[in-house]
Write a protein that binds this DNA or RNA. Structure first.
Length: 388
DNA sequence: CGCCGGTCGCGTAAGCGACCGGCGGTGCCTTACT
């Protein structure tokens, strides 16, 4: 199967364990790095099992990419989303009802609707990007926390939950919300030895921007600059362009077609520097990002690690720089407390984040210990090995 | 923290500054109106 459909000779990492768990009807929680072949863990069983594999995915863009890739390989896959015309949705439902689909991708918001219809003969439920249950489920996308209640109506198939980043608390939370039963748990190291972590404090905005410009001049390849608000992405992108850099702002306030065009131009190198809010990220896998610079403090270490981790996907050395001013910390505290129903781990997250800023010991260790991993040796950070 | 938008007062027409309160960042899904 693997050879015929995907052209691979063997599984990588712990994919094999995840595939076997699904085939044996076991629940599974798989924590695999980006690029570690997460999707194969449910796509291979989907083709071997009878019936349908239902995939819960957070973004329509991800569903489209996955479905397109599967169809190129001749797999009967489809997605349902609000971007489709009524006709297209009806077509998908017809193929689904006829039992001719192997994989169906949907957003969690659509699950209740599917669960209330005719039985679908689901033999596997895959929850992709399962950290969304903890990170988005509390206030932003509450349907993520209702998946467990719908399992009965979906026929309680075996479940596989997949993510690249999850603290021990998040893993427990995922297992609880999805009602996982004695799940096969697969964990791999989060450590990315080719990433060099550094933090630089500034008293005011002006020297911080000058430091950013110095960093950008020292880099020839692609760069992501993260900022906490949409407004500031516009401002910083404008300033950088005035300095002669190829830079563009990216945030969720831009029209969808413009965002897609920006992404294409960043991916093929026509834009070198993307200046973004946290809207930029999930599903983007550009191998040659050499620098991820934060001008501001993310509310939680896992957000920071996800964002910074978009550097150096190709395995070559890359830098993660956090440039902060005192005001960032107060803002991060305010935002991490959140309004009603904020994520429970917010306090530990914020305090670890401030420790990351101010520690004089290994920064990599601070991040990885928060994620539940102890490391023997630092692959490089500004405290363990000074910057050249 | 720092920005933005709404309201108030001024003082008689239209618009400006001062002040206050709320929010900042992620995306699915509706469904009734233009």
């Amino acid at each position: 199967m693997l050879q015929r459909v995907w052209g691979y000779d063997d599984f990588r990492y712990q994919q094999r364990r995840a595939v076997l768990a699904a085939l044996h009807g076991r629940d599974c929680l798989a924590i695999l790095p980006t690029g570690g072949g997460k999707s194969l863990c449910y796509q291979v069983p989907a083709l071997l099992l009878p019936g349908l594999t239902l995939v819960v995915s957070p973004l329509i863009a991800l569903m489209q990419d996955q479905v397109a890739a599967l169809r190129r390989r001749g797999v009967a896959a489809a997605y349902l989303s609000s971007t489709q015309s009524a006709e297209t949705q009806a077509q998908v439902r017809a193929v689904l009802a006829a039992g001719r689909l192997k994989l169906l991708y949907v957003a969690p918001e659509r699950l209740a609707q599917l669960a209330s219809g005719a039985p679908l003969g689901i033999s596997l439920l895959a929850v992709d990007e399962a950290h969304c249950i903890s990170e988005w489920g509390h206030d932003f996308r509450p349907h993520y926390r209702t998946i467990g209640r719908l399992l009965g109506a979906l026929g309680r198939p075996p479940i596989i939950a997949l993510t690249a980043t999850a603290t021990p608390e998040t893993r427990t939370d995922i297992a609880r919300v999805l009602h996982l039963r004695w799940p096969v748990t697969i964990t791999t190291s989060f450590d990315r030895p080719n990433l060099r972590f550094a933090v630089r404090p500034f008293a005011t905005e002006r020297p911080r921007l000058e430091a950013l410009v110095t960093l950008l001049r020292a880099t020839r390849e692609s760069v992501v600059v993260y900022l906490p608000t949409r407004n500031r992405t516009d401002g910083v992108a404008t300033i950088l362009r005035r300095w002669g850099f190829s830079a563009a702002p990216y945030h969720a306030g831009l029209p969808g077609n413009e965002r897609r065009a920006l992404l294409r131009r960043f991916m093929d190198g026509r834009i070198r520097i993307i200046v973004a809010t946290n809207a930029f990220g999930m599903g983007i896998d550009k191998p040659d990002v050499r620098l991820v610079a934060h001008l501001g403090v993310p509310a939680r270490p896992e957000s920071y690690y996800q964002e910074a981790g978009r550097a150096g996907r190709d395995g070559a050395p890359a830098r993660c720089e956090l440039l902060w001013v005192p005001g960032d910390v107060t803002l991060a505290r305010t935002l991490s407390r959140g309004g009603k129903g904020a994520a429970p781990a917010a306090t530990r997250g914020f305090s670890t984040m401030t420790r990351y800023l101010t520690t004089s010991s290994c920064r990599r260790r601070v991040l990885l210990e928060y994620l539940g991993e102890s490391i023997k040796q630092c692959g490089g950070c500004d405290n363990c090995r000074p910057q050249p």
